[in-house]
């Protein structure tokens, strides 16, 4: 199977994720869109790493670290969203302008 097709798939997933981030105002919905972009990036990383067996372990190591950091990032953003919901009662990003001081 050509790596070319995997890269096209990751490009389409990236486009869907960017559309979600741009068009939505809900924090959780934007986080989910960012996760779609993360999946696309991971797919392209591993597709390119599989081209050469010398880069394969390096790509794998980077993917393991990226997945771990992504799990941590999800925790941070969800915590912020819960805090925002408790303080303002909404998840609208436009309300974030009022978080001062």
């Amino acid at each position: 199977m050509e790596v070319y097709y995997y890269l096209i798939l990751s490009a389409v997933l990236l486009s869907i994720g960017i559309y979600g981030i741009v068009s939505k105002r809900n924090v959780i919905r934007m986080l989910l869109s960012a996760e779609v972009i993360f999946n696309a990036a991971l797919l392209s990383l591993l597709s390119l790493a599989s081209l050469d067996s010398g880069y394969g372990p390096v790509g794998g190591a980077l993917a393991v670290i990226a997945i771990s950091l992504s799990a941590a990032e999800v925790g941070v953003i969800v915590s912020l969203a819960i805090l925002m919901f408790r303080m303002r009662g909404t998840l609208d990003t436009y309300e974030l302008r009022r978080f001062r001081g």
Binding site: I67, A71, V78
Partner: peptide, 29 residues
């Protein structure tokens, strides 16, 4: 995505993705 990683020759990454990403991150959300 895990299936695609496995097809590319990264079955360990696919399992890690299933356990950490699907099993922990998405469930946390």
């Amino acid at each position: 995505n895990a299936i695609l990683f496995s097809l590319l020759g990264f079955p360990i990454i696919a399992l890690f993705h299933l356990i950490v990403y699907v099993g922990a991150a998405v469930t946390f959300i």
